[in-house]
Design a protein around this nucleic acid. Structure first.
Lengths: 216, 216
DNA sequence: GCGAACAAAATTGTTGACAATGTTGTGGGC
DNA sequence: GCCCACAACATTGTCAACAATTTTGTTCGC
């Protein structure tokens, strides 16, 4: 975690508060459905209420907090149902990105994906679910990045931010890494083969399986 | 255009300013890339700068305006390239909605789609491109609505708001309604047949054709 | 003991003023 | 004549105080 708030350094206060608060929510330091009182946050981060307000409006637009007129803000809780709906959107959008990546990625980028694949394989056989989860996240991020589809990337990052809590829960489930590993390898293989349709199918198959897992 | 600002009615000022400003941008009353000075807007809408600021932050998150630190806000201009990227995202998301709608829509809702289809047919043969464009918009909206996929609907409305300018341009192109009509009818038919895969394919075919048209 | 009107506290919404930052126009030095 | 420093201006960012709203606790009547 970064230092403390720096009220006088010229660093834009709202930006600072926004980043801090966002990280706090994403790292789970704020309990789900916890009330976010503007005064408390302002004192906690060493900025004024106006900056906190601006940050909260921003976070509301990102779907991370809920704000009700004259009633305050709370960190938004994502039900399993919503998580499924969000993952369905991820499914089609990441499918689009994978298809584009299969066409436009450079050879160096494909090599990077291959390396990620072997690293993931190693993490699974070594029994390191946390490392695997991080690599998993990075693989998806790279595919998005390589697609060059800025609009889709933006939407996906918004959606992913809302799923942090559910992601953790999923990664630690026994047996889950083994299944998802194969799906990930299939995705990589399809992109390496520069086959957009296969890439899209592989991504969708993977996220369909994630949805099934989400539903318990 | 609605009446004038109502500073004292108890209607939340920020909400009012937000709605007004949003409509103004969407209706093209603000020239593309026009500078949006907080003071001017505040006076124009009869609210204070703080409310305008909040509205601008909101609109930035919706992709309708651009804000640069200490430099002000402008209405965002969407290049053709961006419009294509946005429409690609629409393509997959509306595909998802159509597939879900084909499964979960009620018989009454299917009948409504059928009615919309015949109305569109009539508008085209009658040579009324504006009516057709409105029906077009409504058809897409209804399919989204019937899908029950709230997350996707939210994303799509955001994306569509960014395309107003391009949509107008497209609707008035000669010959375009005739082509798009057939695609729309195919979409309706596939949903009526309760065939999710066919519905998704039809939607994607339609929006692929829209993308081609966008590219001139 | 229970419910409704009422008062008090907590919290958000709004306002106007002030500070910080970026932009533009102007004059001196070369 | 051209370039750079500098000052005046415009605009956004921040702040503290005030108003409006909702929630909570209390008292009165039944």
């Amino acid at each position: 975690m970064p230092k403390e708030a720096r009220p006088g350094t010229g660093e834009q206060a709202k930006q600072h508060a926004l980043a801090q608060l966002r990280q706090a929510i994403l790292h789970g330091e704020m309990a789900p459905a916890q009330r976010l009182v503007e005064n408390e946050l302002a004192e906690q981060f060493g900025v004024t209420r106006a900056s906190i307000r601006a940050a909260l409006i921003d976070l509301e637009a990102q779907g991370l907090v809920e704000r009700i007129r004259n009633r305050g803000s709370r960190v938004r809780v994502v039900s399993v149902e919503e998580a499924v709906a969000i993952t369905e959107c991820r499914m089609v959008l990441e499918g689009l990105c994978a298809a584009k990546a299969a066409v436009v990625a450079s050879d160096e980028q494909l090599a990077e994906l291959t390396d990620l694949g072997t690293a993931m394989q190693k993490a699974v056989s070594g029994g390191e679910p946390v490392t695997y989860s991080e690599l998993n996240h990075e693989l998806h991020a790279r595919i998005r990045e390589f697609s060059g589809q800025l609009t889709a990337v933006e939407l996906l990052e918004r959606l992913n931010a809302q799923l942090v809590r559910h992601r953790f829960q999923l990664a630690l489930r026994p047996g889950r890494p083994q299944q998802s590993l194969n799906e990930h390898l299939a995705m990589i293989e399809a992109i390496r083969a520069r086959d957009p349709q296969a890439a899209e199918s592989a991504v969708r198959a993977h996220l369909t399986s994630v949805i099934d897992a989400l539903r318990d």
